[in-house]
């Protein structure tokens, strides 16, 4: 059974159509990567899953329920967490407040405190930063807070929009291995990535979006192994060079 299934959706910004019958699936415990060039509609697809953009046609099913057009907060409470594009931390709040707000939909105070500890062992750097305002952290640290905030809701699925954007190579590797760690604990991941070779290192399955259409899908390994596919749809990448 699928955890998330996006069924032939069409989305619009005013008169401009972004998606033309896009269908995509994420199985439980899977890392699915969504690839595609600039303005191909990747972020909009994430926003459709999260209920920020409502599709004009088609359905979004999550964990057996139809979540199409539901309010974002209600979708989050069903078990999806979001690491938004450019992180969007609450800059004026402390790191601790940011992390705890990730658990806003939960009531189990005791377990929340345990999860906070767990996340601090996952991101030890944040331990010393807990009382600082999130806005003063470095890009890499902010990315950790964003991922920690998402994990605090104990999601079944995390949607990440370009989690490695703007990070130094060292941090990029860390983020990728963290995604694998999170995934190993049973959380499915749907991630948007511009850099295909990076994404395909960890993705179980990948989709390529072009001008609002899915033009290709394959297992991560198959796609990574096929240089022609990379040239045709993804442009030249570091490894292809």
């Amino acid at each position: 059974m699928n955890l998330l299934s996006i069924q032939s959706i069409r989305t619009f910004y005013g008169p401009v159509q972004v998606h033309h019958d896009v269908t995509l699936e994420v199985r439980p415990r899977q890392i699915v990567s969504l690839l595609g060039g600039n303005a191909s509609g990747k972020s909009t697809l994430m926003k459709t899953v999260l209920g920020i953009v409502k599709p004009r046609q088609g359905r979004v099913m999550f964990d057996g329920a139809d979540i199409t057009g539901r309010p974002t907060a209600a979708i989050i409470r069903r078990g999806i967490a979001s690491v938004p594009e450019s992180r969007r931390l609450f800059q004026g709040l402390t790191v601790r407040e940011n992390l705890l707000l990730g658990a806003y939909s939960r009531q189990d105070t005791q377990a929340i405190a345990e999860d906070l500890d767990r996340i601090l062992t996952l991101f030890p750097r944040l331990s010393q930063r807990l009382r600082q305002r999130a806005g003063v952290l470095s890009g890499g640290e902010q990315q950790m807070v964003a991922m920690g905030r998402a994990l605090m809701s104990r999601p079944k699925l995390i949607c990440m929009d370009e989690p490695t954007m703007g990070l130094s190579p060292l941090f990029v590797d860390q983020v990728l291995s963290l995604i694998q760690t999170i995934n190993a604990e049973g959380v499915a991941v749907l991630m948007v990535e511009q850099n295909a070779s990076l994404a395909l290192r960890i993705a179980h399955h990948a989709y390529v979006l072009q001008s609002g259409r899915i033009v290709l899908q394959a297992t991560g390994a198959a796609m990574a192994a096929d240089p022609r596919i990379q040239d045709a749809y993804l442009g030249r990448t570091e490894t292809a060079a």
Partner: peptide
């Protein structure tokens, strides 16, 4: 109170942590 401040700073992000803004 945190949720109110979070909403004030970025309501779209607030919704994405499950706050009914």
């Amino acid at each position: 109170g945190w949720a109110i401040r979070a909403t004030a700073q970025d309501s779209e992000a607030a919704r994405q942590v499950g706050i009914f803004t």
